[in-house]
Design a protein around this nucleic acid. Structure first.
Length: 494
RNA sequence: GAAUGCGUAGCUCAGCCGGUAGAGCAACGGACUUUUAAUCCGUAGGUCCUGGGUUCGAUUCCCAGCGCAUUCACCA
């Protein structure tokens, strides 16, 4: 006997043919009048046998017990998380006398992973288990490959990511997170819509990948014979819309950065950016707080959510702290004292020669402050040179009107009073370009954007939120790959 | 990109200080009309990630490669 002839797949294929030989389509067809299994499980079971309600459900066979003239299968559909206590699925009894001749033959060919619909009465067994006593079985689809272990499920990270469809079935957290993600994004849309923002769609393919300092993915348009880049930010097109009089706009969309992969970085991720005419970074703080509080509420109620070994308290108002104050507190010197900063940086081995003082300040901030920011805390008033798209404070050119929202050391939101002065904007673009190495400086100067600003952009506040990281935080997920259904993996070898 | 760890049956995992491998579940055959990770009897299932090296002999030791994970680097 060769192993191939004996394989799970071969055996299941044989069963599939046997099912077809019964005159039953092994790939199923439309079924009407189905009830969600979650709803059936809520029906009362303590009724007399002749009073049992008639039900009809469809789902996947996740467990099977065969005891002679009666088979028991556990059916699962997406309305009930698998493995949650013993109510994660519904038990179905297939009795030889009850399901008819074809139904009984069919029962002999059922495997874990197959999909069936059953009709029957709903009650409980002698042992008190809620059960559908099947009168009719309809075959809906064969699983030609065996499913994961019914008890241990799937543990291997790579296996889970490469078989997300199985992960969704056997690890309830996966489906739960996917649902929560949808709910959070829906909440953001509702919140912004209520505030009068318009959701817009801007191009993914850019001739110039601007709006952030990141390496883009490059592609090529054949008919025009031009290089194109996938967007790395939403900012520049949205601000053009501000110039065009669209006073409150936002976009929730995928951006792409050709950089490393880590528990917090996926090459494509989802960003929300919004721009509000006549606002500033302080109006963005209020809006951000309201938005996140709404998302937390949408998930169920508690304002204190677990994250890893810690908790995060989202009860408003969030703390607000000046960058310079935090800097002095944790670094021990004033960020305006360039010599002192350089000295502290040099002590830790950081090369300071030729670096702009603000770059050194930023380094020290990242090293000494960021991971202390348990938050939620709005850090505001940044050193200006770090923020090329941000308006400077009126009367203090060294300070940029910007904040970042930190929670558990993660940057969750980033907002500015937008720079609407085309002359300053062009200057900061150019000075930034001058500091970039050759491969980083690819076509970042967006002349058309400057031209748009010359036509007059209203003063405005702008906000960006990394949606994936927000969802990580709100769903207690430690890796971005688990809030994205299909994170990038190296392709399997053939 | 670097360091470390991991890769064994469909799944979850043992094991081998070098003598070509085991368990539970799944599968196959049989018994059982109220089971609950059903139980009982029996059977089969493996390129021990890939390629080299050392050795009489490598799944085990060594080297290289591939994949994944963690940490770091990169990353507004």
């Amino acid at each position: 006997m060769s192993s191939a002839a004996d394989s799970h797949e071969a055996i299941r294929s044989d069963k599939l043919r046997a099912i077809a030989a019964l005159g039953v389509d092994p790939w199923g067809h439309r079924v009407d009048g189905l009830m969600p299994i979650g709803d059936v499980l809520k029906l009362p079971t303590d009724v007399a046998e002749d009073q049992r309600p008639q039900v009809k459900v469809a789902g996947r066979i996740v467990l099977r017990r065969d005891s002679g003239k009666v088979h028991w299968i556990d059916l699962w559909d997406w309305t009930t998380p698998l493995r949650e206590g013993d109510r994660g699925k519904i038990q179905v009894m297939l009795g030889q006398k009850q399901v008819g001749e074809v139904g009984w033959k069919l029962a002999q060919y059922l495997d874990l992973g197959d999909q069936v619909a059953v009709e029957g009465t709903f009650g409980k067994t002698r042992m008190g288990e809620p059960t559908i006593f099947a009168e009719k079985v309809t075959f809906l689809g064969k699983s030609l490959l065996p499913h994961p272990d019914k008890y241990s499920g799937m543990q291997d990270t790579e296996f889970r990511l490469r078989h997300r469809y199985l992960d969704l079935i056997y690890n309830p957290e996966t489906l739960d997170r996917a649902k929560k993600r949808i709910q959070i994004i829906r909440t953001i849309r509702r919140y912004l819509d209520e505030q009068g923002f318009l959701e817009v769609e801007t191009p993914v393919l850019h001739a110039i990948a601007g709006g952030a300092a990141a390496r883009p993915f490059a592609t090529h348009h054949n008919a025009l014979d031009i290089p194109l880049f996938q967007r790395i930010a939403l900012e520049l097109p949205l601000k053009r819309l501000l110039v065009g009089g669209m006073e409150r706009v936002y976009e929730i969309g995928r951006v792409f950065r050709n950089e490393g992969i880590s528990p917090r970085h996926n090459p494509e991720f989802t960003m929300m950016e919004l721009y509000q005419a006549y606002g500033d970074y302080r109006s963005m703080m209020d809006l951000t707080e309201g938005l996140i509080v709404d998302c937390v509420k949408a998930l169920g109620g508690s304002m204190v959510l677990p994250y890893g070994e810690h908790t995060v308290d989202f009860t408003p108002p969030f703390q607000r702290a000046k960058y310079a104050d935090l800097f002095r507190e944790y670094v021990g010197v004033s960020m305006e004292d360039s010599d002192a900063c350089a000295r502290v940086a040099a002590q830790t081995g950081y090369p300071t020669a030729g670096k702009h003082p603000d770059v050194i300040v930023q380094h020290l901030f990242e090293e000494n402050v960021e991971d202390k920011l348990i938050g939620p805390v709005f850090v505001y008033d940044y050193p200006a040179t770090l923020c090329p798209l941000t308006k400077r404070q009126w009367g203090n050119e060294k300070i940029a009107e910007r904040f970042e929202l930190y929670i558990r050391g993660m940057e969750l939101a980033n907002a500015y009073t937008e720079l609407n002065d085309p002359v300053t904007q062009e200057m900061t673009f150019r000075s930034q370009l001058a500091g970039l190495s050759a491969d980083e400086s690819m076509a970042k100067m967006d002349e058309d954007f400057i031209r748009a600003l010359r036509h007059g952009m209203p003063p405005a506040g702008g906000l960006g939120i990394g949606i994936d990281r927000l969802i990580m935080l709100l769903t207690n997920t430690q890796t971005i790959r688990d809030v994205i259904l299909f994170p990038l993996l190296r392709p399997e070898k053939a």
